[in-house]
Design a protein around this nucleic acid. Structure first.
Lengths: 146, 146
DNA sequence: CACAAAGTGGGGAAAAGTGGGGAAAATGAG
DNA sequence: CTCATTTTCCCCACTTTTCCCCACTTTGTG
């Protein structure tokens, strides 16, 4: 389980330290790829395995082909240096618009890496916003599929 | 079952002592996250487990992505020091506007941590207010979905 | 009143994060 | 094929944060 948000520096070489709490839970075979809303996503092996359902074949619908190409094409296996950092590739940094600092966010089953500003918009909520969204989801759960 | 309100100091390092009566009932795996109305909420493991249905994957809908990011991003596992204190992260303290002192409130299945002033507004109800709110809730229960 | 339990505060060791230099490897041009 | 240039990655040094430990105060209890 990955919890919490951390603000870390990204140096000129594209290196970011992954919080030690997260690193302990990431065995080799961990993969980083592009995610929704312009973030990067770090998949532990067991989570990545679930994405393997996405496969190309003669019967794969067009959207799935597109998704598969983007997800797998952008993916790289995570390699940690002795200081617990990974290197974000140039196109990963460009996709997520990451320079200088990044937010590293534990989202239950995977980890996301965000551009500074973008995370402030999406992740930082005032008490009022937070309360509203909780209530919205509670409402959705009471009356799903609407 | 968590009952009662306690007023404890929060030191410069963000540490708060959790009342001994509560601590006895909190096994490891307890989680603290943001809650409605600007408080922090402490979830014992069995309560937190209910929140974990939310997972991210390549097919998770947009609303669930947003909620998952906020909920889990704001959460931390509770780690008690030898004196029975937990550390509130900087963003948790900012969210709940906690400095100096906080109220720790047992609310049946969860524990809440409140800013000093905010709790006075919520917790110190006159008999008239209390009666009115009881009646409101009773009314809602009789006619839900309104 | 004495003792035990709970809460508070701070110092210091250890761990985590940051930045940069330089060797090795890869790339590319002549 | 060789040499120069760039990139990658490994290592070291420094700073900051975390957390562990000890001591004191306050509260509660017999």
């Amino acid at each position: 389980m990955f919890l919490g948000t951390y603000r870390h520096a990204v140096d000129a070489k594209g290196r970011v330290a992954i919080p030690a709490r997260f690193r302990e839970q990431l065995p080799s075979g961990t993969v980083i790829s592009k995610g929704a809303e312009g973030c990067l996503q770090v998949y532990p092996p067991q989570e990545w395995a679930q994405e393997q359902g996405l496969r190309l074949g003669s019967t794969t619908p067009a959207e799935e082909r597109r998704l598969a190409r983007m997800m797998f094409g952008a993916a790289r296996e995570c390699e940690f240096d002795a200081q617990g950092r990974i290197v974000l590739s140039a196109d990963q940094r460009q996709y997520a618009d990451i320079t200088g600092v990044a937010w590293i966010v534990g989202v239950n089953n995977l980890i996301e890496i965000w551009n500074d500003e973008a995370w402030r918009r999406i992740g930082e909520a005032t008490p009022e916003e937070y309360t509203r969204i909780q209530d919205q989801v509670a409402e959705r759960r009471r009356a799903p599929r609407t």
